[in-house]
Design a protein around this nucleic acid. Structure first.
Length: 542
RNA sequence: GCGGGUGUAGCUCAGUGGUAGAGCGUCACGUUGCCAACGUGAAUGUCGUGGGUUCAAAUCCCAUCACCCGCUCCA
């Protein structure tokens, strides 16, 4: 039986293992960091969640903010795409550079854009000259020079007669270390001027790489997608051209994505291989705020409809300074997972207003924010650093008689995180019950919908129970169990989160009724055995 | 990435150099007439992995992997 002394998350992990919800990947070989497997119950649970999303968002979406219908279509694109997709989306640049972080002010600097200035006391040729420190700047233009001079004066006020001696670009770690004589802890942050707050330069390879083709070289290097969204954007024109969709409409996709997370942790919450459920919703720019608010609320309510009803679920609007450079609004749907500190929430889904950033990126090439405007990122030769597709991804609206680049609202959900939240929310301890641990899954998500038990495995009870079980099985995942005591069988179903158990007893032979036991209350009622499917249909479609 | 902790049966854990253990779970048989019941019996271990010390290692040493906690990170 479960040990109820450990912390909640440990007990949930133990139950997930014990009942076959989640296993560590490659466990017999010692496991592999950041990867998890779903067992027989877990796969049903996660599939039910994904099916609910697909049904509720794609096949049977809600009405729009104006009470009118809008179109939603699906997509399933390849995990490996043309490398240029990631160069234009910005993923490649952001995570293939050497980066330096300031641990004080949390600024992050590209190592190859960082300049370091040596500051010494005394005048030139002064044999008593002493090293005061190193000042880092972004770039080495006039602004940077003015900045570093001001900072040097301030620094040297404490130590009289300071001067700038040398400046160089921190283009490689070796040069950086050598030129600082390994005194890298004397380098001051360009942003907050804190000394010694830099991490060592680190290479950020967020994307997992592979090679398409038998020869492993730079020419055929490819990336496993870090998000499913880009596959939607690059198919935008295909969908428009072939599927008779009209704005506003959405394209949905779920599937595996991969990120080389620095610190995979917290059970399945941050994994290197994970599954996303993403929608890109395309609309006229003038209506984008309205659709953003619409999707934010629709998505939040979706979680509550699946039983995430407690105060542990919340909607959090991002602050202005928290927004990505292209976003005009983002909300996170968050859950207070048991492994987080009190008051902390973890992201289940981000709903972002992305403007026309993505479609323009795939037309014009990678975009950067310059003075509040998105412009193509230019290389040293003045040409776009990463060339776009050059394809026209604008849309002609026949009613408005207007051509424009649609704006995008992106509800981006984590299927594994939602599954984990559902598990955590369902986990209940009630020590007054003979079986103190139970999983109170929403009936729609429960991996097993019903179990059928002969009270004892004799006196003709199995003969009555088996046909009932086989009838249920045609429509819902169900289990039949005739072994061991009835209490043990109920307890097993409680841990699996099965909402209903039907038991055939002595009275069944007399009047044809069976008992139905409710998982959450333990209460029983009798119904006619012919009404079992009808009963389930009514109870499960909530 | 840094610091601390933990790895022994499916789960929870005991076992500080000398035969691999317990409770629960699982399975079988019997019993059982509604909530992890009882009886009898059974199966289950690369003691995380690799190396070293030793006549002998779950136990001591080194390395490594995984998980947990705290920082860090999370486009």
């Amino acid at each position: 039986m479960a040990n109820l002394n450990g912390n909640v998350m440990e007990r949930i992990v133990a139950l997930c293992k014990r009942r076959g919800f989640v296993f560590q990947s490659s466990e017999i070989y010692g496991g592999i960091n950041g990867f998890w497997d779903y067992g027989p119950l877990g796969v049903e649970l996660k599939r039910n969640l994904k099916d609910a999303w697909w049904l509720d968002m794609v096949r049977n979406p809600p009405l729009g903010p104006d009470g009118r219908e809008f179109q939603m279509v699906g997509l399933d694109c390849s995990i490996i795409m043309h490398p240029q997709v990631w160069k234009c989306s910005g993923h490649y640049d952001l995570f293939s550079d050497m980066m330096v972080d300031c641990q004080k002010c949390k600024s992050r600097f590209r190592h190859d854009q960082l300049y370091v200035w040596e500051v010494r006391s005394g005048l030139e040729d002064d044999p008593q000259s002493k090293l005061i420190g190193y000042l880092a700047t972004m770039g080495n233009d006039d602004d940077a020079l003015a900045d570093v001079q001001a900072r040097a004066r301030k620094l040297s006020k404490k130590i009289s007669g300071g001067r700038l001696l040398d400046q160089w670009q921190a283009e490689s770690i070796i040069a950086y270390r050598t030129r600082c004589n390994n005194n890298t802890d004397l380098v001051r942050c360009p942003s907050c001027d804190e000394q010694g707050s830099f991490t060592t330069p680190r290479e950020f390879n967020l994307m997992l790489e592979s090679h398409a083709g038998p020869i492993k070289d730079e020419d055929n290097r490819v990336f496993l997608r870090p998000e499913t969204a880009q596959g939607i954007f690059v198919n935008f024109k295909n969908v428009i051209d072939t599927c008779r969709v009209k704005l506003p409409f959405g394209i949905a996709q779920m599937g595996k994505s991969f990120r080389n997370e620095i610190t995979p942790r917290n059970f399945t919450f941050r994994s290197r291989e994970f599954e996303q459920m993403e929608i890109e919703f395309f609309c006229h720019p003038s209506e984008s705020n309205r659709w953003y608010e619409f999707w934010r609320d629709v998505r939040f309510n979706w979680y509550t409809s699946l039983g995430l009803k407690s105060a542990k679920l919340r909607l959090r609007e991002h602050d202005k300074d928290e927004l990505s450079h292209y976003s005009c609004g983002t909300s996170d749907i968050e859950y207070a997972f048991p492994f987080l500190a009190d008051g902390d929430f973890g992201e289940l889904e981000g709903v972002a207003h992305r403007g026309d950033f993505d479609l323009r990126s795939h037309m014009e090439g990678k975009l950067v924010n310059k003075d509040g405007k998105l412009v193509p990122d230019l290389g040293p030769d003045g040409k776009p650093k990463w060339k776009g597709s050059g394809k026209d991804l604008t849309y002609f609206d026949d009613e408005r008689k207007e051509r424009f680049t649609p704006h995008v609202v992106e509800p981006s959900a984590g299927a594994d995180r939602a599954t984990l939240a559902v598990i955590c929310e369902a986990y209940t301890v009630d020590e007054s019950r003979p079986s103190p641990e139970l999983m109170r899954f929403h009936p729609r998500l429960a991996p097993i919908k019903a179990a059928v038990f002969p009270l004892v495995a004799k006196d003709g009870m199995p003969e009555i129970a088996e046909p009932i079980y086989r009838d249920i099985r045609k429509r819902w995942p169900a289990q039949y169990d005739a072994k061991q005591s009835i209490g043990k069988r109920y307890a097993r179903m409680d841990e699996a989160g099965t909402p209903f158990c039907f038991t055939i007893d002595g009275q069944t032979k007399e009047d044809g009724t069976v008992t139905v036991r409710d998982r959450d209350t333990g209460a029983q009622e009798r119904i006619d055995k012919s009404r079992v499917s009808e009963y389930l249909a009514a109870k499960l479609n909530v």
